[in-house]
Design a protein around this nucleic acid. Structure first.
Lengths: 194, 194, 194, 194
DNA sequence: AATGAATGAGCTTTCATTCAT
DNA sequence: CATGAATGAAAGCTCATTCAT
């Protein structure tokens, strides 16, 4: 399996660095190859084409992201706590990997429709995770059960995403993680049983 | 003033159509010119360069968007009602101009950092409008006054934005406007005085 | 006759100014029109095309140049004196019209083959004038009569031209006219009866 | 080193041919690439941009020119003989490479100010060579020592240059090299100790 | 006679991808 | 497996010229 070979990971990591530092449109394959310390042609032994590198970046990083998130959420019992962990981890991970934050919030969105569709495929796993929290909350009567799950999820994800994007656009000048409690309070108000 | 000449509007409208149908990266200047029924060179009598077309598209459309929105909001007295009108109009306008919806939710985000900064300048007017509603609500004691205005705004905008994007990504298969009441309820819960 | 209309002269003068200030390749028709205070289209009522403007510039300026030169030369009796007047006037005229100097020594030489051929047509009158001085000198036994007239003329013109070009390339930092006596001495040595 | 790779030379030679046959302004990069038998993009592996091709043409050819010239001059003892060898070789080299003659006398002069400055840098080595002959002549009392070296050099270079240009403009109809003795006589008269 | 908005052909350069070594 | 030289398609922009007013 190519995904486990060292050069595969080298290239993915190089891609994150290059894209974060140069922006999507200035991230030529040759630049990624140079950063990864391999020849241009070598890239094509591990990836179909340039788009495939980008999708792989997202899959790899998002895979880890979701994995960590699932573990963290399982440690909590109530939906409210799970939601808090979700928000805090979401902010925390992106706060501690600024390259990744730039790439996910800004650069990857510059890709074309086709690529974005495939990125959304990966994202679905994350959205499903949020859905689980919401359903759990509704079952346990913590959250109002008449609420449309998709809308609640869009509120949760949209709010977190917008918050991170604003933070990135402001050049990460303030502390993102410390916003978690307030965001949690806001979102919880929106969901909870009145 | 170039902005009032008929060809200017022709080109802006052509750009929206072409970008929505072909995607940002497949929207060559020549394609936009053809759609507008003018020569390629004519584009450059009205716009600095290709990027300028995109910014102008956003400025023109967003200008109308905000204008309509301000009028609609003024007709309502309470912050809750204002919020409802905001959501409903946001969904309504994009629902009725599907090309515009595609362009704002997907294609314009593919632009580079510089362009996105300029787009954000325009967007700021809209965000400010949301801020006004929130402050008004806090003054009138409808909304909890301890809430951070920026975070609330990010929740409101993020939720609406994510909802529209999901709808566009789902190829606009369901009715967006009918989601307004539920989104309003969700967001209101988040803001209001408990 | 178009050549006597005021706009014709306006445009020719504008062309000299624009070319000297912006260089040949940055002298668009529209720029010349603006400088002349006429509309772009008006240019084409007086000139066939852009090339025609350039040729006319050269014809007009060279015509005056030759006229002045002929007058000045006629005032002198010996070939040696005539040669001195030629050199001094050549340097003097270009010294006092730096725009013209730039245009003739640098910018007009950037034109294409066809245009340069037509410029050479105009130049021929000047070269003929030099030939007359040489023949006169040979007839009067001032100059060695075995010398090939064309070669002598090439020496005279080539030396003057190279001297002016060097001066222009050096940004006209020194006094060109004061070089006339030495250049005269040099050239005279080359021609004269030993 | 790129300069020693075969494709580099291929492209430089192709450029000389294409420019001589089509003129500077009709020498598109694609035409040069085709003549060189390489892809358009390959040009940019060896040259910065189109201008760089032209400068390289001049550097390569002028380098050889000066090299040959230096060798030839060293074989002669007196300044008069050195001057003769200079003239004869100058005419000889350009006589035997008519494409090069067209390019140096006509086409390269069509370049813009910046390019011409860089061409002049290369030319300086040649002018310095002429200066050496003059100084040598003055030291050995062959040439009049009161003469300004720069002016003498301008006479020598200007005369040769004008002679070659006239020959090229006359479509190389007569034998250039056979003019060398007369040109030498003329120039020598100008320089020598009276 | 004069205008100036409109035209559209034309060209340099980039960069993802290939393939001989 | 790995290389990197070579490829060539693709597109934004300029500007001389026209022509309806």
């Amino acid at each position: 399996m190519k995904r486990n070979k060292p050069k595969y990971k080298q290239i993915v990591d190089a891609a994150v660095t290059v894209i974060a530092e140069n922006g999507y449109h200035q991230s030529q394959v040759s630049k990624i190859a140079k950063q990864a310390g391999v020849a241009d042609g070598t890239i094509y032994l591990y990836f179909e084409n340039k788009e495939d590198i980008l999708i792989s970046v997202f899959q790899e990083k998002m895979g880890l992201f979701i994995e960590k998130m699932e573990e963290a959420i399982q440690t909590k019992a109530t939906a409210s706590e799970k939601l808090f962990v979700l928000i805090e981890n979401h902010f925390n991970i992106l706060s501690h990997d600024r390259h990744l934050a730039i790439v996910t919030q800004l650069e990857l969105r510059q890709s074309n429709k086709e690529l974005r569709k495939r990125i959304n495929e990966v994202l679905k796993d994350y959205l499903r995770l949020i859905d689980h929290i919401i359903c759990h909350g509704q079952e346990k009567k913590e959250f109002a059960s008449h609420l449309n799950v998709r809308l609640v999820r869009q509120m949760i994800f949209g709010t977190m995403d917008e918050t991170v994007t604003t933070w990135v656009m402001n050049e990460q000048k303030y502390d993102l993680v410390s916003l978690a409690p307030q965001v949690h309070e806001l979102l919880l108000q929106g969901c909870k049983q009145q």
